[in-house]
């Protein structure tokens, strides 16, 4: 049932894409078939893989930093009622600012290259991860904690057996949101301040009006993001069903 729906969706997207191609024409657009072909050419090109590796490395570092810092902020603030009430609107406001405007600051601080990309990716992910973690901890039903006290659990046992399982589903939702945003942030970082990576390639293709590359890179990025998001979403659903 679910598999069939997904297949229908993919078919719908492909048909819409093809129709759009016929409407827009070949100067500024490519058909699905042409795009898949250029993507295959790109993947077979030995000069392409180093860029992928570079992007993946930057993204992995950024994501690790975002999760680490995001969870630390969220869990620390979420544990205190006052702190979470003071901080949450600030975090939500930070989420709403166009982070791209901060990019020059990042470049001035870190210089062009890997650290800037990583930092820029990470700042995209930290905020949503910390917001979700904060709410996950704050919204734990107090009855659970009181039950832990009644059972005379040690603080460590209470954290391990009650706090973490109760907060985990929301934390995973936050990590999923953080994943997507960190990926977008890292790519965005590569589009300006980098000499390598997929974002750099995309920017290059754009300045050269290389439609084949633009379409192929966009397709590869979307497929990658959608696949990993799908996996995280499945985990997310599993955890939420349990509660």
């Amino acid at each position: 049932m679910k598999a069939r729906d997904t297949l229908i969706l993919v078919a719908v997207v492909l048909v819409a894409w093809q129709l759009l191609y016929w409407a827009v024409g070949s100067i500024a657009f490519r058909s699905p078939a042409e795009t898949v072909r250029s993507a295959a050419v790109l993947l077979a090109d030995p000069r392409f893989m180093p860029h992928v590796r570079e992007s993946m490395l930057a993204f992995a570092e950024a994501f690790a930093i975002a999760v680490l810092i995001g969870l630390s902020i969220g869990v620390t603030l979420g544990a205190s009622r006052l702190a979470s009430e003071v901080a949450e609107p600030i975090l939500v406001a930070l989420y709403s600012i166009p982070k791209v405007t901060l990019y020059p600051v990042i470049l001035l601080v870190f210089g062009i290259g890997m650290p800037a990309k990583v930092a820029f990716g990470a700042i995209h992910g930290i905020v949503p991860i910390s917001i979700f973690a904060l709410n996950a901890i704050r919204n734990i039903n107090p009855v659970y904690l009181r039950t832990g006290q009644v059972l005379r659990l040690s603080p460590w046992a209470a954290a391990r057996k009650i706090l973490i399982p109760a907060a985990l589903p929301e934390i995973v939702t936050g990590i999923r949101a953080g994943f997507c945003l960190t990926l977008i942030g890292t790519l965005l970082g590569e589009m300006f301040g980098a000499q390598r990576g997929l974002g750099h390639l995309l920017m290059q293709a754009m300045t050269r009006h290389n439609m084949d590359s633009i379409m192929a890179l966009t397709l590869l990025l979307v497929v990658f993001a959608a696949t990993v998001n799908g996996l995280l979403l499945a985990l997310d659903h599993r955890l939420h069903r349990r509660v």
Binding site: L183, L188, M206, V228
Partner: peptide, 18 residues
């Protein structure tokens, strides 16, 4: 569910061309 995982800026070059 996947929408916000899509790097929307990746479509920007396309939009400019179009």
């Amino acid at each position: 569910a996947t929408y916000y995982a899509i790097p929307m800026y990746a479509f920007y070059p396309l939009l400019i061309v179009v």
